[in-house]
Simulated scan of single mutants.
Amino acid sequence: MTVLVGYVDTAPGNAAFEAALAEAVRRGEPLLVLNSPQGGALVDKALVGDDRRAQLEQAAAAAGVPLELRQPTHHDDLPGAIAALADEVDASVVVIGIRRRSPVGKLFLGSDAQRVLLELDRPILAVKPRG
């Protein structure tokens, strides 16, 4: 089994990575980082570059956790991409970062995190950044 984390280099994404790494250590499982850029985008600021990839790999190595980073593109269905990968690797837990949102924003906008929480059929750990 594998710990799967949806990752973007933001405060919620980094909180999710830290929690996923701790969970991988606790479970004695490898860590799979999903960093999925929007398909068709010429530039995607969510895409992890070489420097950040090296930092993630170094943190995992220091914790004694094997790490794999995958960057498949998704087309307006990031929750579907997370679910498909979770099924492919039989993830024991999926870790996602969430951000603070107003009640009105929650009511009208929905979110990828909400879809992941409602649609995946496996344990999910949702993490907020401190502060």
Score class of each variant (00 low, 15 high):
residue 1 M to E: 15
residue 2 T to D: 14
residue 2 T to Q: 14
residue 2 T to K: 11
residue 5 V to H: 09
residue 5 V to P: 13
residue 6 G to S: 15
residue 7 Y to S: 09
residue 8 V to N: 07
residue 9 D to G: 08
residue 10 T to K: 04
residue 10 T to F: 06
residue 10 T to R: 07
residue 11 A to K: 13
residue 13 G to N: 12
residue 13 G to L: 08
residue 14 N to I: 10
residue 14 N to D: 15
residue 16 A to R: 06
residue 16 A to P: 07
residue 19 A to P: 03
residue 19 A to I: 04
residue 19 A to R: 09
residue 20 A to C: 12
residue 20 A to F: 10
residue 21 L to Q: 10
residue 22 A to G: 15
residue 22 A to H: 11
residue 22 A to Q: 13
residue 23 E to D: 15
residue 25 V to L: 05
residue 27 R to V: 09
residue 27 R to Y: 05
residue 28 G to S: 11
residue 29 E to G: 01
residue 29 E to N: 08
residue 30 P to H: 09
residue 31 L to V: 07
residue 32 L to P: 01
residue 32 L to C: 10
residue 33 V to I: 11
residue 33 V to F: 02
residue 34 L to E: 09
residue 35 N to C: 06
residue 35 N to Q: 07
residue 35 N to K: 02
residue 38 Q to I: 12
residue 39 G to Y: 11
residue 39 G to R: 12
residue 41 A to H: 11
residue 41 A to S: 15
residue 41 A to C: 00
residue 43 V to P: 00
residue 43 V to H: 14
residue 44 D to I: 00
residue 45 K to G: 04
residue 46 A to T: 13
residue 46 A to S: 15
residue 47 L to W: 04
residue 48 V to T: 14
residue 48 V to R: 05
residue 49 G to C: 02
residue 50 D to C: 00
residue 52 R to P: 00
residue 52 R to E: 13
residue 53 R to P: 01
residue 55 Q to K: 11
residue 56 L to I: 09
residue 58 Q to G: 09
residue 59 A to F: 02
residue 59 A to Q: 15
residue 61 A to N: 12
residue 62 A to I: 02
residue 63 A to P: 12
residue 64 G to D: 11
residue 65 V to R: 05
residue 66 P to G: 08
residue 69 L to N: 05
residue 69 L to C: 10
residue 70 R to Q: 12
residue 74 H to N: 09
residue 74 H to K: 03
residue 75 H to K: 00
residue 75 H to F: 14
residue 76 D to N: 12
residue 76 D to R: 09
residue 77 D to C: 03
residue 80 G to T: 11
residue 81 A to H: 03
residue 81 A to T: 14
residue 82 I to E: 00
residue 82 I to G: 01
residue 83 A to N: 14
residue 84 A to P: 01
residue 85 L to Q: 14
residue 86 A to P: 03
residue 87 D to Q: 14
residue 87 D to N: 13
residue 88 E to P: 05
residue 88 E to Q: 14
residue 89 V to K: 04
residue 90 D to R: 11
residue 91 A to D: 10
residue 91 A to L: 01
residue 92 S to N: 01
residue 94 V to I: 08
residue 95 V to H: 03
residue 95 V to A: 04
residue 96 I to A: 01
residue 96 I to R: 01
residue 97 G to M: 07
residue 100 R to F: 05
residue 100 R to S: 11
residue 101 R to Y: 01
residue 101 R to N: 07
residue 103 P to R: 06
residue 103 P to C: 08
residue 105 G to L: 02
residue 106 K to I: 06
residue 106 K to V: 06
residue 107 L to W: 13
residue 107 L to D: 02
residue 107 L to R: 07
residue 108 F to D: 01
residue 109 L to I: 00
residue 109 L to H: 08
residue 110 G to M: 10
residue 110 G to K: 08
residue 110 G to R: 06
residue 111 S to F: 01
residue 112 D to T: 13
residue 112 D to M: 00
residue 112 D to P: 00
residue 113 A to I: 02
residue 114 Q to G: 08
residue 116 V to Q: 05
residue 117 L to K: 04
residue 117 L to F: 06
residue 118 L to K: 08
residue 118 L to M: 14
residue 119 E to T: 14
residue 119 E to M: 07
residue 120 L to C: 09
residue 120 L to H: 08
residue 121 D to H: 14
residue 122 R to A: 03
residue 122 R to S: 01
residue 125 L to V: 07
residue 125 L to D: 05
residue 126 A to Y: 03
residue 126 A to N: 04
residue 127 V to Q: 04
residue 131 G to H: 13
